[in-house]
């Protein structure tokens, strides 16, 4: 499916389930997502991991409602419990199966996002492994001087921002020297199209969601 339309569909789903209180709908979304992920040959271990990671926040929301809620405590507790899982699994259908480069290309070509945003964010994103290393370097450098830099230390962020300023100018310069011109029209080597089937899935998906929210007599 076209990455932009997939993102749009998932945003609509996430917004709508935030305002509906139907346990079965959330469960149905999780099941649908798992079927899709299995069809895309996502590893079982990854799926299991997705089940474990949100467990603590989900139990937290559940117990908050169950103990301190008003009205239909039990229903609301389960709604929130399943809602978390619906967020996680519908989200995974994008993050686990869609290439970031394809998403950036699609947003630029199909949604007319200015190319400097698409490529700028992509450039920063691709530096992530280096940034991870750099954070370790900053912390190690601090330790050598007997400073423990934690997430509340201004110095840690200060040094991170200094590096970010430096790298952002280098990257922007590197991109211009490779022929990238801001706000200039571009041609594309990797073409991403929206097929009719993409629109059918998007509209069909949104309609199905409305059926799930308003028509189905759940429970």
């Amino acid at each position: 499916m076209n990455p932009s339309l997939k993102l749009l569909l998932l945003l609509i789903v996430a917004l709508e389930i935030s305002f509906t209180n139907i346990v079965s709908l959330n469960v149905a979304l999780v099941v649908l997502s798992i079927i899709y992920l299995l069809a895309c040959r996502v590893k079982l271990r990854t799926l299991l991991w997705l089940l474990i990671v949100p467990l603590i926040p989900a139990i937290g929301l559940w117990s908050t409602q169950y103990i301190n809620g008003t009205g239909q405590k039990e229903l609301m507790a389960w709604v929130l419990f399943t809602r978390i899982y619906a967020f996680v699994f519908t989200g995974a259908t994008l993050t686990l199966t869609t290439d970031v480069l394809a998403l950036a290309d699609s947003l630029e070509q199909n949604c007319h996002l200015p190319s400097k945003f698409a490529y700028g964010v992509l450039a920063a994103y691709n530096l992530a492994p280096k940034i991870k290393h750099e954070v370790q370097v900053i912390r190690a450098a601090g330790l050598m001087r007997g400073q423990t830099l934690s997430f509340w230390s201004p110095q840690l962020y200060f040094k991170a921002i200094l590096i970010a300023i430096n790298w952002s100018q280098n990257l922007a310069q590197a991109m211009s020297s490779h022929g990238f011109v801001e706000d200039a029209p571009r041609t594309h080597y990797r073409q991403i199209q929206i097929r009719t089937s993409d629109w059918v899935i998007l509209i069909g998906g949104v309609l199905l969601l409305q059926v799930g929210v308003f028509v189905m007599p759940w429970r």
Partner: peptide, 26 residues
């Protein structure tokens, strides 16, 4: 769109990545 230069956009995205990595421990 014109108020934003490429380096500003990259800077904000880089800060996002840096902070995201620092927050991982939290």
């Amino acid at each position: 769109v014109k108020d934003w230069y490429l380096s500003d956009i990259i800077l904000l995205a880089l800060i996002g990545v840096f902070f995201g990595i620092i927050f991982l421990g939290t």
